[in-house]
Design a protein around this nucleic acid. Structure first.
Lengths: 209, 209, 209, 209
DNA sequence: GATGAATGAGACTTCATTCAT
DNA sequence: AATGAATGAAGTCTCATTCAT
């Protein structure tokens, strides 16, 4: 633990400040001076902790993708014997992750073009992996006759789009509880896939992220 | 006809160049020099046609929202006696519009925060109007017992999200035809609403935008 | 009479508009667009009547100096036999001219440095001539024992400074009448020169400019 | 002591350079590049020390007015029992200040219109205070029957005008010594006020600024 | 004689980044 | 590890001026 300001390690404070500002104003419109102000240090001091503005964005974007993939893979592993339960669990994780880490996810979706080529490729690759995981579930369900998938790619997109959208409007103490959001979307997706609506609602409590 | 460069009126050329560049690199990352270069004039000459970079973005965003609302309202009017046909027509218009004018729509969805407050309010107001139109259709269907709407707001979001997402990846000569995309998404939404899948496919050709 | 807009010849309208704007905001801060707006034409059209912004300023400054010299010389000629009457008449002319053509005179005094070298020299030369005329009167008075001149140069400056200052605050319908201003300053200058105060007030009405 | 280039603190060097350039070419005609060049830094570096070009002008103008008021008030205080001595001291201070800080005073008199409204009001207010101080002395002299004041306002203007004018031509090693200038103008003003000329010349050395 | 449009030069200002202290 | 200051590059916007119509 190198250095603490108000109990927080400076690098963490920088990362946190950057996430909020990139989310609010966008990467290009955010100045490092604003980041430094939010942290409570001078702009020059940032460079004791980051290499560049680019790299700061890159680390945020790679980090969120890694965490998302890890969470999703864990949800997958827990139900590799029951495809419908697996889908339910994955939707749950997908939506909760996009809600609870909405700002980072939003940055991950909107600032790809701000990233230098090299890092962009790495993020895109992770994003593709994520979509492949979703498509894989849908294919399994389709092959086993458990769901009617009209078009794997578009169905995948529809699910991805829900996450993206949730991340753009979800607020912790907004009108609808996270549980209700998850339940509703799960029902909607299950219907879309022609899976019995009854299966959508879990008897037990859903796993938190 | 004030003045033509290669047969195109300069203000139109500027608007077109700006749309492409804002779409590709984002508003903040696009310089007016790039816009001018694309048009084939010097950067100072832009100011014979625009008031400011802000105002250029604003006019693009207001314009696309106006066009979207107009197209949607026209689709609504054509079927005000048959709610299911109306929904089908609106989905059709929604998706085709977001596909054929993908770049402008994408800007409209992603650059809200780059807009000065005054214009932002006007765009947000139009966006709200648009969502209300969609919600209205869903409510009618629900009230008349023609569809099972799990949650009007989230269902509206899901439909909006499809448009947003299509605008982010659709390319005229990409893998899937626009007709096929419309048909697939229509089927998916109809299922989600518990409307007979058969109703989703039109016997006649769908209206073009 | 080449061309009239609202009964005024365009070149005169331009000159008039330029004088008001140069007076109000200064030469550098005034744009030709503002001049054109005030005239009611477009900025490009100005160039049918002027050669350049510099030249427009130059013609105003040379014009006012010529008019000032002409008025002063006329006042001098009218009393070349009575030095005290001559002084009285010159002070009268000096102050009235600086009041009634305050804006041009103000420009003439404040925008010298905005003028290109060549024209500046011509204006400075006229200004020197003007000061020499005043100094000449003072010297005559001094030589003939009619006045006690402490220092010709500083006394000349003091008189010049009065004109400059009047031009910076005089307004036609301000608190003090032009006649009163002339009378008061004349008294003050006469006292300064040790000339009987009684001589300061003219029996007859002073000549108008 | 933050940082010295050639022994001078950068903010002071900027202020000094700006004064010289604003005096020589005027505020509008002076570019920040010229200021930076004169200081020996790049133009962007200026912004480590100033907020804007406007604010740089404002601080110069407010500063000179504050200094002028302070100097004048000190001169007033020193002779609050003898009105004639007080006048003499004030004229001395007035002229010496306008001569020794001629460039700043000149800027203060000529660039009012270049100032943003808010700061302009503050400078104008200080200027009014200064004129009131002068008027006050004249009124006291008049009330006590020590001087014949023809018109308080115009007499005040005449004195102010002398300062303005001196600031426009005085040069440290010009033809006339500062002491001589002060003495001559004092004599002239005393005469104007009908005060015995003998009182104008001080037996002892005049106070320096 | 008027106009709309183009242009080149340049102005103010911002910003990421570096570095001596 | 923090800071104040410097820097170069760039960005938006303005402006005097020109010219075809």
């Amino acid at each position: 633990m190198p250095r603490l300001a108000n109990g927080v390690r400076t690098p963490d404070a920088i990362r946190h400040a950057a996430i909020e500002l990139f989310y609010e104003h966008g990467y290009e419109a955010t100045t490092l001076r604003e980041v430094a102000d939010k942290v409570g240090i001078r702009v020059g001091s940032l460079y004791n902790h980051i290499d560049s503005k680019d790299e700061l964005l890159g680390s945020i974007m790679l980090g969120i993708m890694d965490d998302l993939l890890a969470a999703f893979r864990q949800a997958l592993r827990a139900h590799n014997d029951d495809p419908v339960a697996c889908l339910r669990s994955c939707i749950d994780t997908h939506i909760r992750f996009h809600a609870t880490r909405a700002h980072e996810v939003f940055i991950g979706n909107s600032e790809l073009r701000s990233l230098p080529t090299k890092q962009r490729k790495r993020v895109v690759s992770k994003r593709d992996q994520y979509e492949k995981l979703i498509s894989g579930i849908l294919e399994t369900l389709s092959e086993q006759g458990l769901a009617e998938v009209v078009d794997v790619r578009l169905q995948t997109y529809a699910i991805v789009a829900i996450g993206t959208h949730v991340s753009s409007w979800y607020k912790p103490r907004g009108g609808m509880s996270l549980d209700a959001i998850v339940e509703t979307y799960t029902t909607m997706i299950f219907r879309q896939l022609g899976i019995s609506s009854a299966d959508a609602v879990l008897p037990a409590a859903p796993a938190s992220v």
